[in-house]
Design a binder for these strands. Structure first.
Lengths: 155, 155
DNA sequence: TTTTGGGTGTTACAATATATCATTCATCAG
DNA sequence: CTGATGAATGATATATTGTAACACCCAAAA
């Protein structure tokens, strides 16, 4: 997750391009929130964003953050981790895609995966049911490989 | 979701059997909460459970409900819908399984599906990554078939 | 210039969830 | 039986996450 300046700038620029194409407004606030989410070292909560926003904007209130987050979610520029109440930058905002996350309950590590198998099976399920997903949520809560090993050692 | 008395009793009895096998305690409170979740006409929130619990138990507080819910979740007797902050009874608590839900943002309808394709792809992803899921969360947020049709009519 | 709609500021509050500590209760070893 | 142990519960307070509602601003179109 830890991001260098270069790729951060690239992400922001890319977001700007996308929004222009889509004729939606990536305002300074929204852009700043996107920056904070992407620059964060892992998933970040709305109120943590709010705190960091204080260093840029004078006295922001919760709705400020939530409005920006809603916009960014709609544009697919960020993902929400429902089970963590936290947000992460989207690694490839061009093509809408099922966000798939592995969330380790032991160490807190969150990893985004991009399994075409999962994506395919979700598509198939939609075909079968006539359901049309706007925002797929796939979050596997459990134990990452590393923590399984260190847990085994303890026992 | 709407459940008749017979299947409700069957579910509760089944839960009791399972807990006995597993040597965990399905106390009266936990059983009551399970009953409320299963009897509910759709997903039910923790505070709604709390309200209904008042008719049985004298002056319960939030922790009472959340403790019971935690237990039931661990035992796989209920599912949590992370994106709704609500709970539903598990339709087949014997074998742990990926809970997969289609959640319609228009009409609020929630449908549990059991796609072996999704289950397989999740298993495969775990194999590939060494991650071990304890609680898979699959929630497709979007529009159900019925609402798509009625939306089309409006436009 | 008026209107219109999106975006923002601000205040207050709703909804969801947990920390903490005291108490009870079943179980089991001695 | 008794005391010890750990799980479950009671009770109070508070933390965390998310919205409602209304006023205001500003750019673009009529």
């Amino acid at each position: 997750m830890a991001l260098n300046q270069k790729s951060l700038a690239k992400i922001l620029q890319h977001a700007e391009t996308l929004c222009k194409q889509r004729e939606v407004r990536l305002t300074p606030q929204r852009s700043k929130v996107l920056e904070l989410v992407c620059a964060a070292d892992g998933p970040i909560g709305a109120y943590e964003i709010l705190d960091r926003l204080r260093q840029t904007i004078g006295n922001p209130a919760p709705p400020t953050v939530y409005r920006a987050l809603d916009f960014l979610l709609e544009q697919g520029l960020i993902h929400k981790l429902e089970s963590l109440h936290a947000y992460v930058g989207c690694s490839h905002p061009d093509h809408p895609h099922a966000s798939q996350f592995l969330i380790c309950s032991d160490c807190g590590d969150v990893r985004e995966i991009e399994s075409s198998g999962i994506a395919d099976s979700l598509r198939q399920a939609q075909k079968n049911t006539g359901f049309k997903a706007k925002r797929p949520v796939v979050e596997l809560l459990g134990t990452c490989a590393r923590c399984q090993i260190s847990n085994d050692r303890k026992v």
